[in-house]
Amino acid sequence: MNDEQPASKKPAVIRVNGSWCKRCGICVAFCPKDVLEINEGNLEVARPDDCIACMLCELRCPDFAITVEKE
């Protein structure tokens, strides 16, 4: 992590492959910062700025549908 990075810059970009995601809800339930939500049957990155890039959603996604790209 770059020490000079502005505090406002989010540490990661979360991408969801909607055609592989099966909306199981595991990523939503175990995100420590409550970043993700399932709305109207779709997985959404509701609060991207809160992401701390812990990678748990990517690691636990059974569907190969989430990637977390660190900035």
Partner: peptide
């Protein structure tokens, strides 16, 4: 981000496992 794509046969995705089945999590760990 880990690039799983170079290891998987994307033509067979999405996989057959049910929503919330842990088998996909194991495959990724492997």
């Amino acid at each position: 981000m880990f690039n799983y794509l170079k290891f998987i046969r994307t033509r067979n995705f999405p996989h057959i496992w049910c929503p919330g089945c842990g088998d996909g999590i194991i495959l990724k760990a492997l």
